[in-house]
Computed example of a mutant assay.
Amino acid sequence: MSALDIEVAGERVLLLPQKALFWPREKMLLVADIHFGKAASFRALGIPVPRGTTTENLARLDALIDAYGVQHILFLGDFLHAKAAHASSTLRAMLAWRARHPQLRLTLVRGNHDRHAGDPSEQLRIDMVDEPFTIAPFSFCHHPDLQAPGFVLAGHVHPVYRLRSGWESLRLPCFVFGARRAILPSFGAFTGGHPIAPLPGERIFVTAEELIFPIEIR
């Protein structure tokens, strides 16, 4: 798999085109805003949306676990989308996935959707923490502008960057890196995105299919 190797806060990390970040020293995969059960929540409201997003998200996690030897997944908030995400079909799929990875450590930094949805089932054996959760030199958060002792790695925004060529434009998920914090793109398969305008000094890394590349800000 293609990945971009960069240094952040004195640590080597890999930015993955699959919209996640891997910290090799800790064998830790960082995933923001996976929003399990979002499609089920829409269907519960009578809105006909595609099925299979939970299975797709889990399959993408499987691929990254295998490719990078992941031992710990840390979710940067919004693991569940809403109370309807506790649907039995969603839970069955997640429990089957957990059974395939019994030794995998899972940690969830609670986000705003998690507080409304409630904690995931205890059967998933996820360590629940509040932001900021710090493993030096990083502080793991859901909200990117939280005051924290370490370099903040967060989600919440679902950042996308608009590439333009003449009259054509394309919105692509991106990582945003500033002096004291970084925002990861949303990992979820059914989550949308929020166009961002980079602040002075920020670096943007855009993901597209199996590629990830820096954007030159002018």
Rank of each mutant, 00 (worst) to 15 (best):
I6F: 00
I6P: 06
V8Y: 00
R12H: 04
L14Y: 11
P17F: 12
K19C: 02
V31W: 03
H35I: 13
G37A: 06
R43W: 12
I47W: 04
T54F: 12
E56M: 01
L58A: 04
A59N: 15
L61Q: 05
L61S: 01
A63D: 08
I65F: 04
D66R: 15
V70F: 06
Q71S: 14
I73P: 09
F75G: 10
H86G: 08
S89Q: 06
T90V: 15
L91S: 10
A93M: 06
M94T: 10
W97H: 14
W97C: 01
A99E: 15
R100P: 01
R105A: 13
V109P: 13
H113E: 05
D119W: 01
D119M: 12
S121T: 14
Q123M: 09
R125I: 03
I126A: 09
D130C: 06
D130A: 01
D130I: 04
T134K: 11
I135F: 04
A136Q: 11
H143P: 03
D145T: 11
F151M: 03
V152P: 02
L153D: 07
A154I: 10
H156M: 05
V157F: 08
Y161A: 10
R162W: 07
R162Y: 08
R164N: 06
R171P: 00
C174K: 11
V176T: 05
G178Y: 12
R181M: 11
S186A: 15
A189V: 00
G193I: 12
P195E: 00
A197Q: 05
L199C: 12
P200L: 11
E202T: 02
E209F: 04
I212T: 07
P214K: 08
E216I: 10
I217A: 09
